[in-house]
């Protein structure tokens, strides 16, 4: 364990170490659209990379 030297200060408890409460949100409106866009993007990119590697592009 660390050996402390010098004056020992009494400090208040560090407040803010507790994790913030976390509740699930239901994506609505633009955020919902963004999530669907993300799904489409991932599928398209995976397909394109697979094609690229199949053709030996590297």
């Amino acid at each position: 364990m660390r050996q402390k030297h010098g004056t020992l200060h009494i400090v208040e408890p560090v407040d803010l170490e507790a994790p913030v409460p976390l509740t699930r949100i239901a994506p609505k409106g633009p955020i919902r659209l963004v999530f669907w866009g993300l799904r489409a993007y991932i599928l398209v990119m995976l397909a394109l990379v697979a094609i690229g590697f199949a053709r030996g592009l590297h």
Partner: peptide, 19 residues
Amino acid sequence: AVTHRGHAEMIWGRYGSFW
């Protein structure tokens, strides 16, 4: 620093198990 939670924990807790 604000949440005291890791990135995986945040995604899992906020956006559900699929993401």
